Simulated scan of single mutants.
Amino acid sequence: MRGLLDPKVDFVFKNIFGSPKHPRILISFLNATLNPVNKITGVEIKGTDLEKQFIDDKYSRLDVKATTNNNEIINIEIQLKNEYNMIQRSLYYLSKMYEEQLGEGEEYSKLNRTICINILNFKYLKTEKFHTGYRLKEIETNEELTDIIEMHFIEIPKLSNESDEKDMLMAWTEFLRDPESEKVRSLEMSIEEIREAKDELVRMSNDEKQREIYEMRAKILKDKVSALNEAERKGVEKGIQQGIQQKSIEIAKNLLDILDDETIATKTGLSIDVIKKLR
């Protein structure tokens, strides 16, 4: 028997958490993440034609977009690899979602609460907490200006192995981390939404067409990660070379008054032309 698909791959995540067939899953996840005073009881999920979206543009962002019964606009994105721009990226999409609510001439009072939730399969922020939420606050007093925009980070690797299974956000994060774990098997016995998500994951995993699209998406994401790793490697190598070059130049400057150009070139590895420019 083949294993389950990885729910951290965005194609799978969106099929489970962004499907209008299973609104209870998203509602449960949002209530666990946002912990609202007025619990979310309904969601309208956007962009549900996932297969068409993926086939038309294989490099598109497969995030989950929804509006809640509390008139909140939600965007959930899952990231497998640290691209070192998550805060800027999330702020950009958050501001874009906020701005797009108004047509020309419409009043600002029509703007609704806008929330970005970033699920990361890597450690990113300095805090040890696996879940953090941010709003606009006064710098010294910490007084909240408004809750109309909000940003959350869920860092899966920071979830403790001793996590409290009664905490719903911990339960959902455990499901994303390892849906075949003993913890998740226990959770699906007691939590209907977890069981519903697991059943959908099993269904997808046994569907040849879904698995084929998953394999395509997983390869694209793997290639993207490989490209990022290669760029990082080249960046490090370039930095090392630049450091060596700078050190050689400093040595050459100290030798200008006591040695000829040819000898300095031999000792530092710099070209004669570079040394002449230092004089």
Rank of each mutant, 00 (worst) to 15 (best):
F13H: 10
L30N: 03
V43E: 06
L30D: 03
D49G: 14
T33M: 01
R24W: 03
K21W: 10
H22G: 01
G42M: 14
V43Y: 05
I16Q: 07
V12S: 00
E44L: 13
F11K: 05
E44M: 14
I45L: 03
G3I: 13
T33K: 00
F11T: 14
N35I: 09
L50T: 07
L30K: 02
V12I: 15
K8I: 08
L5K: 12
L30Q: 01
D49W: 10
L34T: 04
P36C: 01
L34G: 02
I45T: 05
G47C: 11
L34N: 10
L26V: 08
L4G: 09
L30F: 02
I16S: 08
L5C: 04
T41L: 10
V37C: 03
L50Q: 11
V9H: 12
L34P: 08
N35P: 00
F29E: 00
D49F: 15
R24I: 09
I45K: 02
G47N: 15
V43F: 07
V9F: 04
P7Q: 05
S28C: 09
A32D: 00
N38D: 06
P20T: 02
K46C: 04
T33C: 00
V9A: 13
F17Y: 06
K46Y: 13
T41P: 01
L26E: 09
F17E: 01
S28A: 06
P36K: 07
N38L: 15
G18Q: 05
K21L: 11
S28K: 01
N35Y: 13
I40Q: 03
H22T: 14
G47Y: 09
S19E: 02
T48H: 03
D6I: 15
T48N: 12
N38V: 15
P7C: 07
I45N: 01
I45A: 02
V37S: 09
T41R: 12
L4I: 10
P23D: 04
E44T: 15
E44Y: 12
K14A: 08
E51Y: 12
I25W: 10
I27A: 04
F29K: 00
V9L: 08
L4V: 11
P36T: 05
S28T: 04
P7M: 05
N15C: 06
F17Q: 02
S19Y: 07
T41H: 13
V9Y: 09
F11L: 12
K39L: 14
I40K: 01
L50D: 06
P23L: 12
I25Q: 03
N35A: 14
L30P: 01
G18L: 04
N31R: 08
T41F: 04
L26K: 10
T33Y: 00
T41K: 07
L50G: 05
G3R: 14
K52L: 13
I40F: 02
L30T: 01
I27V: 13
I25D: 00
E44G: 12
D6L: 14
V12G: 03
N35V: 14
R24K: 11
G42L: 11
I25C: 02
P23Q: 06
S28I: 04
L34F: 12
L4T: 11
S19G: 06
